[in-house]
C-alpha cells in the first residue's frame, strides 16, 4: 500500500499552498482521481486522516472526484468513456485501443481555505 505516502505528498503540497495564500485553516481538499492512477480511493482517504495530523489541514475533509478513463478510437474518430478497465476497446465499435486520453489523474484541483482576515475581493 502506497496510499499513505501519496497522502503525505498531497498534504505537503496542499499545506504549502494554503500557507502561501495566508490561510488560517483548510476545510476541504478537492482531488481528481483517475481510475488508472493506481491509487485506491478508500486507502487514500484512510491515509489522509493520518497525514493531516498536526498540519494546517487537520480536521479538513478530502473530496475525491472519480475521473473515468477516456479512450480514442481511430475507427470512430471519437473519444469515449471506457466502461471497464479490464477491456481496452472502443465501447462503440469494439476496436481495441490503447490511446488513453484521460484517467491517470492524481491532481489537487483546489482547496477550501479560511482566511485570517476578511477577504477584499
Amino acid at each position: 500500500m502506497h496510499e499513505l505516502s501519496i497522502a503525505y505528498n498531497l498534504v505537503d503540497i496542499a499545506s504549502q499552498a494554503a500557507q502561501e495564500a495566508g490561510a488560517s485553516g483548510v476545510d476541504a481538499v478537492y482531488l481528481r482521481l483517475g481510475k488508472l492512477s493506481g491509487v485506491e480511493k478508500d486507502a487514500l482517504l484512510f491515509g489522509y486522516d493520518i497525514a493531516i495530523k498536526g498540519t494546517l489541514l487537520e480536521g479538513s475533509r478530502l473530496e475525491i472526484e472519480d475521473v473515468p478513463v477516456m479512450v480514442y478510437c481511430p475507427v470512430c474518430d471519437a473519444v469515449s468513456e471506457l466502461p471497464d478497465i479490464q477491456l481496452f476497446c472502443c465501447p462503440q465499435c469494439g476496436t481495441p485501443t490503447g490511446d488513453i486520453r484521460q484517467g491517470k489523474e492524481l491532481e489537487i484541483l483546489s482547496l477550501e481555505i479560511d482566511d485570517e482576515q476578511p477577504a477584499y475581493s
Binding site: I6, N9, L10, I13, A14, A17, A18, A21, A23, S24, G25, D27, L31, L106, E107, I108, L109, S110, L111, E112, I113, D114, D115, Q117, P118, A119
Partner: peptide, 13 residues
Amino acid sequence: NNPRILEIRRGVL
C-alpha cells in the same frame, strides 16, 4: 473566518 476556494491544480506526484 471567510471560506474561499483556492485553485491550485497540482499533481500529487
